[in-house]
Design a binder for these strands. Sequence first.
RNA 1: GCUGCUAUAGUGUAGACCGGCCAAUCAUGCGAGCCUCUCACGCUCGCGACAGGGGUUCGAAUCCCCUUAGCAGCACCA
Length: 488
Amino acid sequence: MLAALSEKHEHKKVLPELEDAGKGVVMRFAPNPSGPLHIGHARAAALNDAYVKMYGGRYILRIEDTDPKRVDPEAYDTVAGDIRWLGLGITETVYQSDRLTLYYDLCRQLIEKGGAYVCTCDNERFKELKMARQACPCRDQPVEQNLALWEKMLAHGFREGEVTVRIKTDLLHPDPAMRDFPAFRVLDSPPHPRKPGAFVYPLMNFSVVADDHLLGVTHVIRGKDHIANTRRQRYIYDHFGWKVPVYRHYGRMGIEGVVLSTSQMRLGIKEGTYSGWDDIRLGTLRALARRGILPEAVKNAMLAIGIGETDISFSWDNLYAENKKIVDPVANRYFFVPDPMTATIHGAHPVVSRLLLHPADEKRGVRTLAFSGNVLLPAAELADRTRTLIRLKDLFNVAIEHDHGRPHIAFAGDSLADARAAKAPIIQWLPAGAEVPCTLRTPEGDLAGVCEAGVQQELSKVVQFERVGFAKIDAVTDDGIIAYFTHK
RNA sequence: GCUGCUAUAGUGUAGACCGGCCAAUCAUGCGAGCCUCUCACGCUCGCGACAGGGGUUCGAAUCCCCUUAGCAGCACCA
């Protein structure tokens, strides 16, 4: 019986098996340090993480910083922080910028094998030849000449744009993107933040293959925008005679109503449209964190999506549901009164109300609200003139009469049963004078209100404002509390 | 345009490789009710899909073809 019950809650989505994973796997998460991680990154990170946990093995964090133009020096720390927050089972970290000489050595080997050549053609000229499926003059240079040119390249004998190392592929390949794609280039500026002296850089397809092989990566899960790269990379594997990892390419994930492009976010922050990388209108992990979304929820949501090749649209509802499962049992409950109006309750005696911090766990204790005549109520609750009876939660019932504009509110008994029988709404309230100003920030704008003083003890935690929704307490100051709306 | 991939309810997902057990799974969402001093949680019931058209077959969500739609790539980015 108990087993049957718990089974029902363990409908854990199981990821499909990977080939050749029986003896464990080596996988990697390979972000480019250009800005903070967002939901899109979380999918790759969570999927790879889950497979490593499933089969056992190593999980490599590889910082792909081989394009100094796309490296934001601050992002090294940002990315590290985001990964810490996500709680990935990273076993080792490598920086590609530390491995340049490794790539140089492999490049020389590849040239010696005749698998690559140093091309000094004009870019436009090469492109024309490529589209016409024709070899450029450099392609047939003898190995010795290629090696000499490569040495010259490493000795800074070429300026930016004058030279590129190309992988020999198939000039007749129907996809022009496959034909003799580039592997190394010279960049004179900007200087690399971590390796200021560097000027010969590998392109992604080369460094990725080199590292996947060198680090022993067995399985690669990445977005299908890399399908063409996988095909290109296969040429390099073939030239070296290396074993190709198992690849899985998941579909594109569209995300409603959120900016994910790093450059757009950066621009928006610079122009003041967004307050920072954790502006709640952005899809960064830090924005989610600020709103009270927990990393486990993000990971669970990503695993539920899985590795399907179909393009999908990410739904916030599904993420919120995952988050609520985690947050509901732990979040303390408090009253938040939006748009408060003061009301005098006629005919009521002072009384102290004790409310549970959590309805399912009495041991967590109570909060006390001392009523002594005046309360603060959500103005919206009094707007409906047909409403004659309301129960103030854990206090008593009140009768409302709308005489001339201002409602007249009077004590109407303690009986909860009466309130239920009359289908009276049970609403949140605060004793006048005991309130703390509280601004609830939502993606749609700020909601001004007041909340219990106890909320001041919940800094950086997620609480539930009863009948309003979950919120992360972002700041507690003398001026009041700032909370971010998480979800209902 | 060229090269390739994909198509199950509002959203996500299982089933597809090995056709029948699928009048199609689970979650989420929505609706109704129960429970409950929250519009939360929990429980019950309900709504809702095999993109379209051909073909193969006794039988197709599952295999084949076409159409349509979406996506990716076609960078000296990752």
